[in-house]
Amino acid sequence: MATQTVNRILRRYGNDPTDIIAILQDVQQAYRYLPRDVMETLSARLDIPLSRIYHLATFFRAFSLEPRGKHELQVCLGTACHVRGAPRILEALERRLKIKAGQTTSDLEITLETVNCVGACALGPVVVVDGNARGKLNPQRAERLLEPILPEAAPKRSKAKRPPAKAKRSGAPGKKKAPARKAKKKSTVGKAASSAAARPARAGKKVVAGKRAGKRTAKKAKR
């Protein structure tokens, strides 16, 4: 399964090593991060030293060595947004999600990031939620953006209205892993990049496996 995806991406670029950045971008999109084993495969297939792929993976902002969340929140910190109060929006979201910019919630639901400018300056301050720009925010309105993607962020009164199936999905598979991942992240965040290299990859494997398991059980349940 994993190799198929990588093969498809490599074919798209005709196995050209100069296209490595584009290839990594596609891998990032497919897996939501760069798994260690994929980087090893690319290194072997394109004849690029793993160290150089790692250099690229840590140089560019677009790449992540840790799995990113299902939903991506990008807080624009461009100058126009900054002078209109973007830092306070970031703070509000960090407080609400209990993570810092660049981190992912322990249930792998939401990744909070900052971007330099999305070019929607008239709408500033802007937050991009899963690719859709939302503008003219203040801290309160920014927190409200979380409601559709984070069940527990919804105001208490609307809790009852939420369909039970959805609540189950977001709770069950993620929660079990949560404590372990959280501990892991704490140990890697902020440390020298080299020490972070191996661990996220391993964690990644687990996540992929967990995902598959989740799918299987879902299928069973359907039957």
Partner: peptide, 25 residues
């Protein structure tokens, strides 16, 4: 068409060319 990797320095011509060659910008 080549998509950038989100590095400001790649707007600089030699860095941009490095990244076009598949190297860090």
């Amino acid at each position: 068409i080549t998509r950038g990797g989100g590095a400001f320095v790649c707007g600089e011509s030699t860095a941009l060319m490095a990244s076009l060659e598949g190297r860090p910008g």
